[in-house]
């Protein structure tokens, strides 16, 4: 099942439910936001292999070369929003420039976002799920689609501020440029953990991926996010286990394997200490 809608302002929506696909854009000047509602979509950007799961979405700047792959036994449900570069530039100017500057025809250059995974939460999640719901009903109303897309960009700016700008300010370095460079690398560390959470992730692997020494990584990660990379990994595994418990009927043993745990009893112990109930009780509660 595939839904494609290209709007008169050159923004585009593609929604798909498929087990296998490979997509490489043909150099169109557009920003891309990609969401996954069920399953996993892999995205290769500048030699980085990034996995998109239902708890995150990826943002890609205009002009970035990338490709996406879906290879799954169960159907993977995805949504890709493509924003025309001019549209994003205009949106950014409207948000950041005063009325006087806008009337004087002043303009900022097209924004360049940090291309990585962002948490799919809050208003962004609400609005995208509404949009998805409308698409499933065959949405064709351009005004309504544009309103959702407008809000989606607005929500993305909010998430960007929280995930990037606020975290930059938490770092204790004096120079802003140093802070920004560290955040860029910490974002890579999180991206690596998110994409490889179900493998035997080591600090050395993360440190090599984000080009920070292990000590530097540990210190700055804690400063920015308030937890260690290991704690972040464990939280991520628990959250993804919760998602699988809620949305699938996979046996617990299978879920434990899928999220990268070797031992079911140690997973149950961790789950209980984090969620304050056993996985089976959590699953029963999810269906009440």
């Amino acid at each position: 099942m595939r839904y494609v809608k290209e709007l008169s302002n050159r923004n585009k929506i593609v929604s798909e439910n498929t087990c296998k696909s490979f997509y490489k854009p043909s150099g169109r000047e557009a920003y891309n936001l990609k969401f996954v509602f069920a399953g996993e979509e892999r995205c290769t950007v500048n030699k980085r292999n990034i996995s998109i799961f239902p708890d995150s979405f990826i943002v890609l700047n205009h002009g970035t070369e990338y490709n996406t792959t879906i290879d799954s036994i169960t159907p993977v449900n995805t949504l890709a929003l493509s924003f025309d570069a001019g549209f994003v530039k205009d949106f950014t100017n409207t948000c950041h420039l005063s009325d006087e500057n806008l009337l004087d025809g002043k303009s900022q250059s097209a924004p360049l976002f940090l291309e990585t995974l962002y948490p799919f939460v809050g208003d962004m999640k609400y609005n995208i799920l509404h949009l998805k719901n409308q698409i499933d009903k065959g949405l064709d109303n351009e005004m309504l689609i544009n309103e959702y897309l407008h809000h989606c960009l607005l929500n993305y700016y909010g998430i960007y501020h929280k995930e990037i700008t606020q975290k930059v300010n938490k770092l204790s370095f004096i120079k802003t440029k140093t802070k920004e460079e560290i955040i860029k690398r910490l974002v890579l560390a999180k991206e690596y953990i998110n994409s490889n959470y179900n493998t035997d992730v080591s600090l050395d692997d993360i440190s090599a991926y984000c080009c920070l020494s292990v000590n530097h990584l540990l210190r700055t990660f804690k400063e920015a996010y308030g937890i260690s990379p290991y704690q972040y990994l464990m939280q991520l595994r628990i959250n993804r286990a919760k998602h699988l418990l809620k949305t699938t009927d996979y046996p617990l043993g299978e879920i434990v394997g899928l999220i990268g745990f070797e031992n079911t009893s140690s997973f149950i112990r961790l789950f209980k200490s984090s969620v304050r109930m056993t996985p089976s009780k959590f699953r029963k509660g999810a269906y009440v």
Binding site: H130, M143, E147, H151
Partner: peptide, 21 residues
């Protein structure tokens, strides 16, 4: 259940909002 949808529907009916969503 969906403020954006209702906003667009009512706007199409000619309603002028004093506050957008």
């Amino acid at each position: 259940s969906d403020c954006i949808e209702q906003y667009c529907l009512l706007k199409a009916n000619g309603l002028v909002f004093t506050q957008v969503p």
